[in-house]
Design a protein around this nucleic acid. Structure first.
Lengths: 207, 207
DNA sequence: GTCATCATGTAAGCCGTTACATGATTGC
DNA sequence: GCAATCATGTAACGGCTTACATGATGAC
């Protein structure tokens, strides 16, 4: 989940962790408000996997490492410098996505697992995948929404569910789900329409 | 979360774990599809806390414990019996909510934390709390939805958010949130109306 | 007699959070 | 010079899932 988010954002532009979090918030809005405590470990994980790479490090880091002196005090300084490198003086590490990372992103986008959540995030990165994949994701989403609709309707029909609040909850869930399905239908339609225009345009069809 | 669900269901009727999961699915529908791996530990936790208590155990359990013989084979049998008691032959443990559990339920319902999720679950158990609490929960939910609406609108207004898919996502989020707010408004209105009717009815108001 | 369902639990792991630690830079 | 923000990370914990283990009961 968080890896998909990171790769999707980094594909647009090279950023360091702190900026990344802000972009994430801007693009995904209320969805997925990642914390630093999971963002930085995830970046390191992705770096180890070769999906992202450090493009540039702030010169501040170099400045923070004093020259070796050979003295006892020098050893202490070296230890301190090592800490500074590991921890962070304004050690901005700007990350970029690698070829392997782009492959991983495509893989995560197409991944059939965990549909219910994460659909919004995938949609936010739709520009990074081709039309067939987009249509496939939209149709899968629609079918899971339909299943939800069915389940809720079945639950409403069950004897013993006569509490007005539970009833209200289920009616609202039904409405929202239908609303979502209609939305997905519009997205599918416009996707198909765009595909047709692409297909007819090159020949210069008459109006 | 799961404790709220368990207590809310048990307040309606005494059940054993397996039944509880089915009721949970029926009442909460697509919300919160708890697994056994978290349900049983949660029940034990609640039992230790005194919030729920075992009301009855299936006689199957007693039948599974053979009488002591004092022999070596008897010891082995005792060991096996202990295992059977711990693990489970059809060892139905029917749980009921205690007074402490009802207090805990009220506490969990009013708990201001973790609003975003869990609101649906609280609504499903609305019948267990009084009108002021209900109104308070509804108003808190409304204010958090309004905040979300604001945040999404701010994000849409930010430069750099010109991707059509991100745009579609945010517009849909805005619509859904507005829809939700309207729903909450209706719930608040009907709650207030019910309150007024209660207040005027005892005097026998003329139509 | 065997297969689906009922019934309860444990162990390992995933994915995230909050709280903590550390220090640089900027604006007042 | 001092606070707010920038910037990166670690540690501990939380809550839930999946997979595993175990066995009873009923239907066929």
């Amino acid at each position: 989940m968080i890896e998909l988010a990171i790769l999707g954002i980094l594909k647009e532009s090279e950023l360091h962790g702190y900026e990344l979090k802000k972009h994430l918030r801007r693009v995904l809005g209320p969805l997925s408000n990642v914390s630093f405590g999971s963002l930085y470990p995830a970046l390191n994980r992705l770096e180890r996997q070769g999906a992202v790479a450090v493009v540039a490090v702030d010169e501040g880091a170099a400045r923070a490492v004093p020259p070796m002196t050979g003295s006892f005090a020098g050893e202490a300084a070296a230890f301190r410098a090592r800490r500074l490198v590991t921890r962070g003086p304004r050690n901005k590490k700007v990350y970029g996505i690698t070829a392997a990372g782009e492959a991983r992103l495509a893989e995560l986008m197409a991944d059939p697992a965990e549909d219910e959540r994460s659909f919004g995030m995938k949609l936010a990165f739709f520009r990074w995948c081709d039309r067939p994949t987009r249509l496939h994701l939209l149709e899968r989403r629609r079918s899971s929404l339909r299943a939800r609709l069915e389940e809720t309707r079945r639950a409403v029909g069950t004897r013993g569910n006569d509490d007005p609040y539970v009833r209200a909850l289920m009616e609202h869930d039904t409405e929202s789900t239908m609303h979502d399905i209609a939305w997905i239908n519009r997205l599918i339609a416009s996707e198909e329409q765009a595909g047709e225009e692409r297909a007819t345009e090159p020949t210069g069809g008459q109006p």
